[in-house]
């Protein structure tokens, strides 16, 4: 067990290291950011001074070592455009993204579980067929398109929901959140529904498949033979086994959802890290782009690690076979 965890942690660190190298050198291949924000009157000497000030005059490998050293200290440099530490910008905007992603997760579970249980229990009913067709649609249709249709229908045509922004926020432990105010919830609805569709399809497919498999197993038959109520057979005995893979997949998919939030945030002008990334890309704000990429990749690797370890705790066979 300990050996398994140690090996996974070492692997995660190796992946992170490789990613910092790839991302750092990759981002340094793209254009010279100086050209974008130095005015044309600036002389050669003045450009050199700015280059030296930002550390861009040194060789790339030296820049990387400095970057890596600072990274260990949790410092990812100052944003070129804002002039403040990139990491603080990310922490400032991340709660908005996290709130959006969490709301999407909740919607996916609240909608997905009942729908998929229906589809699993009555696989041949027309409603189930419709549910499965919808889940295929959600799986393949780009979410930006769904976002556009939602904006068109519910904010432009019907005027029920606002199309942009985060609405009124209240501070909880110093972090602004939207979901506690009516106005905030109102703004949260459309982007969260849009983002939830990625996970919704996954929840529906996994639960339905899991349920159909589990329903034919002996322990369910025995539970039924024992006269256990049907709601309890499904809601407790069956779900207990189905939920393990669902939790695992959702845990790993949460990182994807944060990455896909880039799209949703751009459409709905949601002030999270994703929108910040797109803005940073358009002005070649290297430290901010790097900080975002490192941040998301780290989060993703850590999430994967936690899920793997949890899974090996929940299901002892995993750790043993991996040894």
């Amino acid at each position: 067990m300990v050996e398994f965890i140690l090996r996974r942690v070492l692997q995660a660190i190796l992946v992170l290291f490789v990613m910092t190298v790839l991302v750092f050198f990759g981002v340094h291949v793209i254009g010279n950011p100086i050209d974008l924000f130095v005015s044309s009157e600036c002389t050669k000497a003045c450009v050199d001074a700015i280059m030296a000030n930002l550390g861009l005059d040194r060789p790339v490998w030296e820049q990387y070592l400095i970057f890596l050293g600072n990274l260990m200290a949790g410092d990812l440099g100052n944003s070129f455009t804002f002039g403040v530490p990139a990491m603080s910008l990310i922490w400032e905007r991340f709660p908005a993204t996290l709130e959006l992603a969490t709301a999407a997760l909740v919607i996916a579970l609240v909608l997905g579980l009942p729908l998929s249980i229906h589809a699993g229990l009555y696989p041949d009913s027309p409603v189930s067929r419709a549910i499965m067709a919808l889940s295929m649609l959600g799986f393949s249709v780009p979410i930006f398109w769904i976002g556009i249709i939602l904006i068109l229908t519910f904010s432009v045509r019907l005027g029920w929901f606002p199309a942009i922004g985060r609405g009124e926020t209240v501070d909880v432990l110093g972090v602004p959140v939207s979901f506690l105010t009516l106005d905030g919830l109102h703004h949260l609805a459309l982007p969260a529904i849009t983002l939830s569709l990625i996970m919704l399809s996954t929840v529906i497919r996994l639960t339905r498949a899991g349920l159909r498999e589990v329903l034919t197993s002996d322990y369910i038959r025995f539970a039924r033979a024992n006269g256990v109520r049907e709601t309890r057979v499904i809601g407790w005995h069956a779900m207990k086994n189905i939920l393990i893979p669902i939790v695992t997949v959702l845990g790993m998919e949460f990182g994807s959802v944060i990455a896909f939030a880039v799209v949703t945030e751009s459409i709905f002008s949601w002030p999270g890290v994703g929108k910040m990334l797109i803005d940073a890309i358009s002005v070649l704000d290297r430290p901010l782009i790097l900080a975002y990429l490192i941040f998301v990749v780290t989060m993703f690797v850590v999430l994967n690690l936690i899920v793997d370890i949890l899974y090996s705790v929940l299901d002892p066979r995993v750790g043993r076979s991996a040894r």
Partner: peptide
Amino acid sequence: DLQLSLPTILVALILLVILG
């Protein structure tokens, strides 16, 4: 495994930021 564990949109984003 490494490739499949990273979100597709994230990898594609990184590459296009780099390549233009």
